[in-house]
Nucleic acid binder design. Structure first.
Lengths: 195, 195
DNA sequence: GTCTATATGGCGATAGAC
DNA sequence: GTCTATCGCCATATAGAC
């Protein structure tokens, strides 16, 4: 087993749950059954290790959206697939979701640029095209594409809170329910944009 | 000037930006021009100070939504006011927004229950009623009310990233643009629910 | 590549004077 | 109510043996 990869995988899990300052190099070393010095053999310092871990977490999800944009589908089918896929990834890979949330909180502009250009731009451009096709206009495509992503992300993010709000049902947290109702809510709104 | 309140206000600002583990009692004491011991005169430990700061940040915003639910308005007008108000609060009080994001990341279940019952339940119930009136059904009201909040929150939260995605315009970050387009997207979807 | 041992400094929290 | 001084511990990071 590749030691470096083992460290990275463990680091993603720990950092995503407790943040940069909440995880010590000792904690991490103990989690991978190594001494701290052994960890420092692979990474020059904690900062570099953290950035590598973030990069690792995003790289793992890069391929998740490949099947979404296949040509032989209608724009609505593509949107449907994208929303389902996003909901699934964010629900199943909790570490990824939390690293993402933490990066948005930190909001280091240099890292945001890297993330935008290297990780999200491709998917976002595809989503904008689909949104333009459904609405029949290029107006507001950026904002609408953003809204699709935002809605799915924050509904999942708010689950620990919404569980305790009136009207909650367990069903609301399934990937299928989220995908179906997000689409129901948005599709008609997107269509009306072009009119 | 009330020393305790001064400490709390400063604590909200520091914790919201750097998190619990990212702020030391020394940092905080220096920011309020006191010794650490003086801070410990007001709060028995760091944990209690953090929780008090969170409570303080939420209390400050409790009154922001008072004018939203006035009776002499249509349901759509109320929804409009709520969305504008939420977008304004999250945009103007960055510390509040970040404390909220951090609490959701921590997701301590006991704290989530307190937050749900003491802070959000009132507003959320009102929002559910409005959503039911617009859609003409009680079905999915919880999920739809949640969607309204989630959409506004995450659009603002993702601003540091969306700035670097294709199609972005400065106008997209104004409270007015967000409120208008969130409503445009959602209203028709909510209306269709009842059909 | 992994270890033990250690340097150096910051951490939360307390004691006790004023 | 605020201070200085300090305790005991844990942090990041390095040195050097195997």
């Amino acid at each position: 087993m590749d030691s470096k990869e083992h460290i990275l995988q463990t680091a993603v899990s720990l950092f995503s749950r407790q943040g940069f300052d909440g995880v010590s190099m000792r904690d991490l070393a103990k989690s991978v059954n190594m001494s701290t010095s052994a960890v420092y053999h692979y990474f020059p310092n904690k900062q570099t290790l953290y950035l590598s871990a973030v990069h690792f977490a995003f790289a793992k999800q890069a391929s998740a959206f490949e099947e979404v944009w296949q040509c032989d589908q209608s724009a609505e089918q593509k949107l449907n697939k994208f929303v389902s896929c996003l909901a699934r990834v964010l629900t199943e890979d909790v570490d990824f979701r939390r690293i993402m949330q933490r990066e948005l909180l930190d909001a280091d502009d240099e890292r945001m640029q890297l993330l935008a250009h290297n990780v999200f731009q491709e998917q976002f451009s595809q989503l904008m095209i689909v949104v333009e096709q459904i609405s029949g206009t290029q107006q507001h495509a950026h904002f609408t594409a953003l809204s699709v992503i935002a809605l799915v992300c924050d509904i999942i993010q708010m689950q620990p809170l919404s569980r305790h709000l009136p009207g909650w049902q367990a069903e609301h947290e399934t990937v299928e329910y989220i995908a179906e109702h997000v689409l129901d809510l948005l599709i008609s709104g997107i269509k009306i944009q072009g009119k």
